[in-house]
């Protein structure tokens, strides 16, 4: 299933997402046809169990999909909708058959800030942590105040309309499920974007001539490219590990590690890609910034690397000297599928 997903999303994004699409998206344009094509492939409901209308894909199967959303800077919340629908499925609620679904923590009467793609969302999955319930809300009639992250992606402030609740159920997942799930998808998106940055930077280093030869001939540039590649590889490996460990909800320590490492890698990787591309890559006309600005944004969303490191560090300190190694090995242990 994984290879099939990978192949179909990579083909779709190669055809449907280019620099012009991304430029338009930043001015507020939304592509119904892109979303319709993703729905036609069954992607938004892929993680939903079969009896609730999905195809029961595991997070291991879906890792390449979310990574590809990062490498192509896809201007649509497929990762968010995948998570939102999976959360509904985990509570036994049948997800809506169609439409953008996003997720957040909070209650139905307060302002929800920084909601990804709030303006496009047809549905919202809300985790009410004080009551331990998960609700599906209709976004029709919600008050939406537009805001964006540093990459120009919608991160809106939303107040739900009264009577928005469609259905709800008890949810026994951890109280920080929303933050963990967000960290999980962002780590894969970061890995994808870093992978693409590595390809772009290597290609540019082979093409750009200075001092009479491609800049990639210079060891100083080669060393930088190697550093970029290792950061991308580390982010990819640890993000994939976090996806392999995720079940109904993400595994805490592996996901915390993934977001911490991917976050640091995002900072270093974006800096190197800009260094290699020189002033040309600093222009709006060049497409480099569609990835680097997203890396900056995704690094801070759902907890920065320092925040996740701190939480992880408290657990490790609590485990003490003899608990350290078991704690580390536990993060990649084989876990039964549900």
């Amino acid at each position: 299933m994984r290879a099939m997903f990978q192949e179909s999303v990579e083909r779709l994004f190669a055809d449907a997402v280019d620099a012009e699409t991304l430029r338009l998206a930043e001015t507020g344009a939304w592509s119904d046809s892109l979303w319709a094509q993703m729905e036609a492939l069954g992607l938004p409901l892929a993680a939903v169990s079969e009896d609730l209308g999905g195809i029961g894909a595991s997070w291991t199967d879906l890792f390449p999909v979310i990574r590809a959303c990062g490498s192509s800077a896809v201007p649509a919340p497929l990762p968010e909708t995948l998570v939102a629908n999976a959360l509904l499925s985990a509570c036994g609620i049948a997800p809506p058959e169609s439409g953008v679904t996003v997720f957040a923590a909070g209650d139905a009467v307060s302002v929800l800030r920084g909601l990804p793609w709030g303006r496009q969302a047809r549905w919202l999955v809300l985790h009410d942590t004080t009551r331990g319930r998960l609700g599906l809300h209709d976004m029709t009639g919600a008050a939406v105040e537009h805001d964006v992250n540093v990459a120009g992606e919608p991160r809106d402030a939303v107040i739900l309309a009264s009577g928005s609740l469609v259905s709800d159920a008890a949810f026994d997942g951890p109280p920080d499920t929303v933050r963990l799930s967000g960290a999980l998808i962002r780590s894969a998106q970061i890995a994808g974007a870093l992978g693409r940055l590595t390809e772009m930077s290597a290609q540019y280093a082979n093409e750009r001539i200075q001092f009479g030869r491609p800049i990639g001939k210079f060891q100083a540039v080669q060393q930088q490219l190697a550093l970029l590649a290792t950061q991308a590889a580390a982010a990819g490996a640890v993000a994939e590990a976090a996806f392999m460990q995720a079940r109904r909800t993400p595994h805490f320590a592996t996901t915390a590690s993934a977001k911490a490492v991917a976050g640091e890698a995002a900072g270093r990787g974006a800096a190197i890609a800009h260094a290699v591309h020189g002033a040309l890559g600093f222009t709006h006309e060049h497409s480099l910034h569609f990835l680097t600005r997203r890396l900056w944004a995704w690094r801070t969303e759902y907890g920065s690397d320092a925040r996740w490191s701190e939480r992880l560090g408290r657990l490790i300190a609590d485990a003490g000297e003899d608990g350290l190694w078991p704690f580390i090995t536990e993060t990649l242990k084989e876990r039964p599928q549900p």
């Binding site: 590690s257 993934a258 911490a260 490492v261 640091e264 992880l312 560090g313």
Partner: peptide, 10 residues
């Protein structure tokens, strides 16, 4: 401490 742990996992 957490940073060392995260990179070790990676």
């Amino acid at each position: 401490i957490g940073r060392l742990g995260a990179w070790l996992v990676a």
